[in-house]
Design a binder for these strands. Structure first.
Lengths: 305, 305
DNA sequence: CACCCGCCCGAAAGTATCTTTCAGGTGTGA
DNA sequence: TCACACCTGAAAGATACTTTCGGGCGGGTG
């Protein structure tokens, strides 16, 4: 997928974009010795030269400022200043060009910067996968149930427990009665209270976490609308789920536990649920959101700057 | 060859590469009106601005040269000259890169599928911004502190509280003694126990959440190594932080609360911390991870009915 | 071989651009 | 209302870039 610019490099074109190395080679024969040294340095290390001032580059190449400027002119720029800008652009381009190392697995001896890049890339990938795999019909159905729910109970343990709490926090903000349960016993005890018109949501990556399935089953048996957010749409949990929202499952490794990407995926689903419910109940949700925002403002110290 | 005195006027921030748009958003709140105008112009049209001189950009934004230089400084560059170079690089990058893929804000009447796509895209963007803006030196320092920590306390309230818990859960899994505090009183009471060799981490998007700053201050005063994960690197919280990890700030709107993207950003930072610490303490972390994984396996019901 | 001519080359003067200083103005809190 | 802090731009000051100009090197010629 290369899209090349059609700047002719032979004629007196406006500032050249990235075909600089080629231009240097083309024009080299018509250059004097000193100018060739400058051109060579520029073509060899664009990034390094971009950091240098005229004087710096002159010293580096053992020439004078005048020669540097002359070279810049010959290459088609109005002066050194513009050559330098082009150089910076070129450097940035070939900098971003080499980044395929990202796809590799995270190694024990990866430098910090690589870890950051790889993790970010992975989570981006997870998001894309999740969005692509999310069934909007199921999502819409879940949203409808939530929008009219009398009460919402959310079950999740471990890492999924945090996602459950996140969803509960959000739903509370728009005026819904939502509660997240991490304690399996309490969850079941509460599930008994649910009835038709209520919503129960189970969040489990494996789809087979008994502590989460059990309360969902109880809620299901009591007539509540049940939703499962899971990475295993064929897992046991879906038996008791009216609507199933599938999260993506990324490859994992020792330094990249499954909990990481499953959490990312679950959160996206949760955000989608929340946003859609907010849309659906906008009349009541908007003021509630504004109010909660306002209430929080006072918890921040006024000294901002 | 060049002997330049290194003026470290703030602390971190070597010239930023391409995380400029993100940086502008992050620092916008701490900018004055005029500087915001300049920053906006720069972020909006990097290529155009790269072609302008100080005077030109000052005229374009209706400000003065001094303000332009001040803005460049705030963005982390030694002066306008360097900002301009970075701008040229950025322009070249997004020229060769893909289309800007502008995303409209989420509307009240967007269909479900659109909401999913927009949210996914937004969170991906947030991840990219965060990764680009993350100071790997600060991150490395924080990792070093964590890897040798006797004890780790993590403070966070509200949405950030969940992130704090996530980090605590993860660190516990690799054998560290970590605890997340959501209760400000208990947090302070515990912070008193910290001393040199311990690590305290405060997570707050606004950077000015008193409930989180206070325990960090106490920990700081008692000699613990302190880390702040915040979207406002100039906020009050950083006063008591030995290391600051900056999360990105995405634009927000009514249907896209700040809590959403800040959480995504914070989680990436947390994942980076965790992964790097795991690397650093691989000898002890790997068996611990394996053990916790093993322990959880029994909580799943492989036998489906 | 010596001389002349052209042209490359760098030092230094000249100019544009960037940076700093400083005083006026504006909004904010008491 | 006043005082204060802080933003803001004009102008001076510093730096980086460009131009000029004369020396010097090489090649061709007598």
């Amino acid at each position: 997928m290369t899209n090349e610019v059609k700047e002719s490099f032979t004629s007196d074109a406006p500032p050249a974009p990235a075909a600089l190395a080629a231009k240097v080679r083309t024009l080299a024969p018509s250059m004097t010795r000193s100018m060739q040294r400058v051109a060579e340095a520029v073509a060899g290390d664009p990034a390094g030269c971009a950091a240098l001032t005229v004087t710096g580059l002159a010293e580096l190449t053992g020439t004078s400022e005048a020669t540097v400027v002359r070279t810049a002119r010959l290459l088609g720029y109005p002066g050194y200043r513009d050559l330098r800008l082009a150089l910076a652009g070129l450097a940035a381009q070939q900098q971003s060009g080499r980044a395929p190392a990202v796809t590799a697995d995270i190694a024990v001896d990866d430098p910090v910067a690589d870890v950051v890049a790889k993790l970010a890339y992975d989570e981006q990938q997870t998001l894309a996968d999740t969005a692509a795999g999310l069934d909007t019909v199921q999502l819409g159905a879940a949203v409808t149930a939530l929008a009219t729910a009398r009460r919402v109970d959310i079950y999740g343990v471990g890492a999924s427990g945090l996602v459950a709490q996140d969803l509960a926090q959000k739903l509370l903000r728009i005026g819904l009665i939502a509660h997240a349960h991490s304690d399996p016993h309490l969850a079941v005890t509460n599930a008994v209270q649910l009835r038709s018109g209520d919503v129960a949501i189970a969040i489990t990556h494996s789809g087979s976490t008994g502590d989460v399935i059990e309360p969902l089953r109880v809620a299901f048996d009591h007539g509540a609308t049940t939703v499962a957010i899971t990475g295993r749409p064929d897992g046991p949990v879906t038996q008791y789920a009216d609507h199933v929202l599938t999260t993506s499952t990324a490859r994992e490794s020792e330094l990249r536990p499954a909990a990481m990407s499953s959490r990312t995926s679950q959160l996206l689903v949760v955000d989608c649920l929340f946003t859609c419910v907010t849309q659906r109940t906008y009349e009541t949700a908007a003021p509630a959101l504004a109010a909660s925002y306002e209430a929080l403002a006072h918890r921040h110290s006024p000294r901002t700057r």
